[in-house]
């Protein structure tokens, strides 16, 4: 018998992760919410966590994230994702519980719930999208809006004398003993996207190891409300957000510090 072997001529290098649902998202073209979703889903796939993960979605542009991820999911009230996640995690300490929240949800209306989840050292992971604006309601000033940035509710530019300065969530939460992991990453180019993914992977690992509260702040774009093309918006993240929001590891558990740390650039 003669067997003819056919050599493979190509290999699969990258495909859409299983933890993302097949559904088309409602996000605007070029919105990095989609990128962040993909990264989280890739990490869930790679750590084989899809079947043991519970997502708590928030209110804002990412309100439908509960159906964009193919995992068990809840939709929390505005700002309350960390409280809801606490309830879920306390009932299922052996499951992976994460929230996906924007800056209005987490840093404005939900700051108390977020801070106290960190203070309790709640063993959950928070994916925090900072795009310096309220997206869903149409581009109002967020607590993360840059000084001087024009929004529909700061039409003359954010006046820090009237509204204060942008809130630095990663630094703020790093100061809390219950926080095990707090870093800031960006998604403005491929290299930074890959660094963001690594951080998300570390955050979930922190939770798997039961080390406490973990948060990854992701600098993101909002082309629609910034009134830019998607590529212009990414340049705006690089040129305007990075100087205000330095990337870096603000807190990393000692046991994980041997791994290569993200570069502050």
């Amino acid at each position: 018998m003669v067997t003819q072997l056919v050599e493979p001529t190509e290999k699969l290098v990258y495909q859409r992760p299983d933890s993302l649902a097949e559904l088309y998202t409602h996000y605007c073209p070029g919105c990095t919410h989609g990128t962040a979703h993909r990264l989280v889903a890739e990490v869930l796939d790679e750590l084989r966590l899809q079947n043991d993960t519970i997502l708590v979605a928030s209110v804002g542009c990412s309100v439908f994230s509960y159906k964009y991820f193919d995992v068990d999911a809840a939709e929390a009230a505005h700002g309350r994702a960390c409280a809801m996640a606490t309830g879920i995690k306390r009932v299922h300490p052996d499951k992976i519980v994460f929230t996906y929240q924007g800056d209005g949800d987490l840093a404005s209306i939900g700051l108390a719930e977020t801070m106290h989840a960190a203070i309790r050292g709640e063993n959950i992971t928070v994916i925090f999208i900072n795009n310096a604006i309220y997206g869903m309601t149409g581009g109002q000033m967020a607590p993360t809006t840059l000084p001087g940035q024009e929004t529909t509710s700061s039409p003359f530019g954010r006046d820090v004398r009237l509204t204060g300065n942008p809130i630095h969530v990663a630094e703020l939460l790093a100061a809390i003993p219950g926080t095990a992991y707090s870093v800031r990453r960006s998604m403005h180019d491929a290299r930074h996207v890959l660094q963001a993914k690594k951080a998300i992977q570390t955050a979930f690992t922190v939770q798997q190891q039961g080390l406490g509260f973990s948060i990854v702040e992701l600098l993101s774009s909002c082309p629609t409300n910034w009134k830019m093309t998607p590529n212009e918006a990414l340049s705006w993240v690089r040129d305007n957000m990075l100087p205000v929001y330095p990337l870096g590891d603000y807190k990393v558990p000692e046991s994980l510090q041997s791994t290569k740390r993200g570069k502050r650039d």
């Binding site: 001529t9 290098v13 859409r16 998202t25």
Partner: peptide
């Protein structure tokens, strides 16, 4: 087949293959 396009794609619509040398 470097996959940088897929890395930045917000909608996860790109699948990447790399040729295997004969």
């Amino acid at each position: 087949g470097c996959a940088l396009c897929a890395v930045v794609c917000p909608d996860g619509c790109i699948t990447v293959y790399r040729d295997v040398p004969a």
